[in-house]
């Protein structure tokens, strides 16, 4: 089952990654009960690493193919942890069915959705 979660190299998206107020994480493939533990470990590390200089976490989900309740639970938990220090979690560029899923899950207040990483930055840091 294909799943990858990583910090993108600085030149891969054409936009400035080392942004003072946000951390970009790329999630690709299938985020389900088999892969949610890996996602949780990775994201939790980002939450902890950033404690001294809190940043929003923007997940580039353009190549995320699948997300189920197990994956949603992880995202919601991370979003709750981020909130404690005034930070937000955003899912950026996700396919329509995944955006709808967040909507019907009732978690849209926690897991923010944007068209792209750039759109999220614009909305969050205007």
């Amino acid at each position: 089952m294909h799943f990858k979660i990583y910090i993108p190299p600085p030149d891969s998206t054409g936009c400035e990654i080392a942004n003072a107020a946000s951390a970009v994480v790329v999630a690709e493939g299938v985020l389900n009960s088999h892969t949610s533990a890996e996602a949780q470990r990775f994201l939790q590390k980002q939450v902890q690493l950033d404690v001294t200089a809190p940043r929003h976490v923007l997940i580039d989900a353009a190549r995320l193919e699948y997300l189920n309740s197990s994956g949603l639970r992880v995202l919601a938990q991370i979003a709750r942890d981020l909130r404690k220090t005034g930070r937000k979690l955003a899912l950026c560029g996700a396919a329509d069915p995944l955006r709808e899923l967040v909507e019907v899950s009732g978690l849209a207040g926690l897991i923010l959705k944007y068209e792209s990483v750039a759109a999220a930055r614009e909305a969050l840091f205007e």
């Binding site: 309740s69 639970r73 919601a76 938990q77 709750r80 019907v104 899950s105 009732g106 207040g109």
Partner: peptide, 24 residues
């Protein structure tokens, strides 16, 4: 049913899978 009147902070995350199935 998942109680969507609770705030996102207070709402339990369990039972989500079946809730999504009903919605879909």
């Amino acid at each position: 049913e998942v109680d969507t009147t609770l705030s996102v902070e207070d709402r339990p995350i369990g039972g989500l899978g079946i809730h999504l199935c009903k919605k879909m």
